[in-house]
Structures are given as structure tokens and as C-alpha cells.
Amino acid sequence: MSLLKGLLEGIHMPEEAAEKIIQLEKEIDYEKLKPMVSKLYERKVWQEGLEELKTELGEDPKGYKILTCMLTAALDTYKIYKEKGIQDKIFYDTFGCFSRFVKEHLASYGSYGFDRCWWTPRQLSMEEFRLGELEFELEKWKGENVISVHIPSDAKLTKENCQASYK
């Protein structure tokens, strides 16, 4: 099994979307895109990297090309998780946002797709992590380091779940 297939299984990507991603992985020259993708790891140049990628990838009406690039980049992020001793569960829970967004596209538009590339550099750059039901993002606010808390659309907000996430 390829590493990308393993990732897609680990984040529970819908089969129809996973098949398109695996096909695009064979067609996209990821090495050529690495300089643009590398910008997705640094907050101050996220937008620049996204715009360059979109231009280079061309027509991408359902967002599968950029999704494939981001998930390929997630394999590099996974290596850093391993180096830092971060549990696989945290990685898969965090990167599960990609599958969640693909499923939300289906609910909104009647077909699988990906339209949240503006959000997911947070996960690629390891600035946002899902811990239990909540997501925690490292940010600066008025020059201070802060942690923003996000509530994913699939979160089950019970007192116990929230307490476990904070713990």
C-alpha cells in the first residue's frame, strides 16, 4: 500500500474521493510543486503559496488537484510528527479535517470536492492540532503567543468531551 493510500484510510476519506486522489497522485508532478508547497508550512506566506499552486495546477473545479498536493505534503508533516513523538491518533484526528471538508462539500453541493485549501495550511504547518473534540491553534495576538480553540463541525460537545480535550 502506498503511503498516500494509508493516509487516506487513516483519515477515512470517502472511497470515491480517495480514488480520484490516488489517480491524480500519478498525474501531478509533485517535485515541481515542492517550492510552492513549502510555503504552506509558514504562516506568513500561506496565501502566496496557495495562489502559486492554484496557478500552476490550472483548472481544478472540484479542488482535487490542490487536495492531492496538500495530502502529499501531509506525508512530510507526518514524518515531523514521528520525530517529535506525537501520537498517530493526533495526526489522523488532525488531518481528518480534509475528509470532513470533502464530506461537507457533498452535503453542500451534491458532490465530493474540496474548497477549504485556505484553512488547511494550519494542519500542514503543525500550528493546529485536534485533541479529542476540539482543535487548538498556535497564534500570535497583539504580539503575544496564544492558543485559539476551534470547534470542528463534527465535534460532540459534552462537558466530559471538552474537559478531555483541554486535559
Rank of each mutant, 00 (worst) to 15 (best):
I28S: 03
I28W: 04
I28Y: 12
D29W: 03
D29Y: 08
D29A: 14
D29V: 01
Y30M: 12
E31P: 01
E31M: 05
E31W: 01
E31S: 11
E31A: 13
E31Q: 14
K32R: 15
K32W: 03
K32M: 08
K32E: 14
K32N: 11
L33W: 09
P35Y: 13
M36H: 14
M36K: 13
V37I: 15
V37E: 12
S38K: 13
S38V: 00
K39P: 01
L40V: 06
L40T: 00
L40H: 03
L40F: 11
E42N: 12
E42K: 08
E42G: 02
E42W: 04
R43Q: 11
R43A: 15
W46H: 14
W46S: 12
Q47F: 13
E48L: 03
E48C: 00
G49K: 04
G49F: 05
G49W: 02
L50D: 03
E51R: 13
E51T: 10
E52F: 03
E52H: 00
E52L: 15
L53T: 00
L53N: 05
K54I: 09
K54L: 15
T55V: 15
T55N: 13
T55A: 14
T55Y: 09
E56I: 05
L57W: 11
L57A: 08
L57T: 00
G58W: 11
G58H: 09
E59A: 10
E59L: 04
D60N: 09
D60M: 06
D60G: 10
D60V: 05
D60I: 12
D60S: 11
P61G: 08
K62V: 03
G63F: 08
Y64M: 07
K65Q: 01
K65D: 10
K65T: 02
K65G: 02
I66T: 07
I66M: 11
L67H: 04
L67F: 08
L67A: 11
L67P: 07
T68L: 03
T68Y: 03
T68F: 01
T68P: 03
C69K: 02
L71A: 13
T72W: 11
T72S: 10
T72Q: 12
T72M: 09
A73Q: 07
A73D: 04
A73M: 03
A73N: 04
A74K: 03
A74G: 09
A74V: 06
L75P: 04
L75K: 06
L75F: 04
D76P: 01
T77R: 08
Y78R: 15
Y78M: 10
K79W: 08
I80Q: 06
Y81T: 04
K82W: 05
K82R: 15
E83K: 15
E83Q: 11
K84F: 04
K84D: 09
G85L: 07
Q87T: 12
Q87W: 05
Q87I: 00
K89A: 13
K89W: 00
I90T: 14
I90S: 01
I90H: 00
I90L: 13
Y92D: 06
Y92K: 06
